[in-house]
Computed example of a mutant assay.
Amino acid sequence: MAQGNSRFAVVAALVGNGVITVAKGATFLITGSGAMLSETIHSVADFLNQLLLLIGLVRADQAPDKRFEYGYAGERYVWALISAVGIFFLGCGVTIYHGVQSLFHPPTLDMGEMKWAIGALLFALVIDGIVFILALKGEWKNAALHGRPFHHYLRNEADPAAVAVILEDGAACLGVIIALISILLTQWTGQHYWDAIGSIGIGVLLGGIAVWLIIRNQELLVGPSIPPQTKEQVTRILKNNPLIEEVIDLRSRILSIDNYRIKADLSFSSEELSRRLKKKALAAYPEIKTEQDFEIFCQKYTEDVLETLAEEIDKIEAEIQRQIPEAQHLDLEAN
């Protein structure tokens, strides 16, 4: 479900930004506005970055094989990280550079043609706003399904691809507003530095988003533990089982947003295990007449112990996966 929502959001953003890029680029060629060039660069960066996100989502869907036995889910974080770096250098770096250059060497602007810039920006605001709302609604539903506050889910559990779309299109909407303000101030005052300031403001906005996305994807590539609430839920399931005496060690790692690996070292109760096997042992006890009978009894009893433990571990794993579907890789060991 999360993967499907992310792909829909990325494809919608990709199509939207393709249309917007053409509109903004044509308007820049007509007006020569630095803010419009920044907005065009912004949209080009968004388009390319969302293309990278889509590549990551497609590659992450590959089935596990002998080379990558836990699958390719991490691919989405690699491509999302490349996308974030692209936003930083192409979106932020080039935009700020152009803004600073325009501040010291103002371009010649045709104020009569600025209406084209305003029209293109309003068109972009509508498209970006639609994509932003669609992506926001998808993640809002996911947060509600997980029973998490939206801001917490977005920061710690949401797919970085969907978060990137939300942030990029949210920034695009804000960037359009900044560009509109700078163009209108340039028209009203006749001072070209407002256009350059708008360009720099858009670059700073993109830089902040890029840094956040880089940090988030770096965390996921390193492999953080599962959310604390989920870890507490696993611990509770284990401790509520009468056969488990103690949870010695519990470690986890997020392989992807819907794929967790959980490892637990458990101490099993000898008293509970003995109680469960008592009837079988008592039934076999009268049959022990010779040393050979005793050896057969010991062998059978050992097999019963191992079988009981294996069955109980299977039941525990099934219960964990029932309550936490993301726990796809479980490793429960008796200590």
Rank of each mutant, 00 (worst) to 15 (best):
I96T: 06
D110C: 02
L122E: 15
G93Y: 13
Y97L: 15
I130S: 00
F104M: 13
L125R: 06
D128C: 03
A120V: 01
I133A: 14
E139G: 13
I118P: 05
F123C: 03
T95I: 01
I127W: 12
Q101C: 07
I130M: 04
L122W: 15
I133S: 08
W116V: 09
Y97C: 13
M114S: 11
M111V: 15
E113P: 00
H98E: 14
D128V: 05
I127S: 03
A135H: 06
S102G: 09
A124E: 10
M114T: 11
W140S: 14
A117N: 02
I118G: 11
L122N: 15
D110Q: 06
K137W: 08
E113Q: 13
K137C: 04
L134A: 14
T108K: 11
A120E: 10
G93F: 13
M111L: 14
I130N: 02
T95K: 01
L103R: 12
V126S: 09
I96G: 05
I127R: 08
P107R: 11
P107H: 14
A117Y: 00
V126W: 07
E113S: 08
M111Y: 14
D128N: 15
P107M: 14
F123L: 02
Y97V: 09
F104N: 11
T108P: 00
L125E: 13
I127T: 10
G99P: 03
A117R: 00
D110V: 09
K137P: 00
L136E: 10
L134T: 07
V100A: 08
W140G: 07
H105Y: 08
G138T: 00
S102L: 05
L109K: 03
A135T: 10
F123K: 07
M114V: 11
T108D: 02
G138C: 01
H98A: 04
V131N: 00
A117C: 05
S102F: 02
W140F: 06
G93S: 11
H98I: 01
V94Y: 05
A124P: 06
L121S: 06
M111H: 12
A135C: 12
L121K: 13
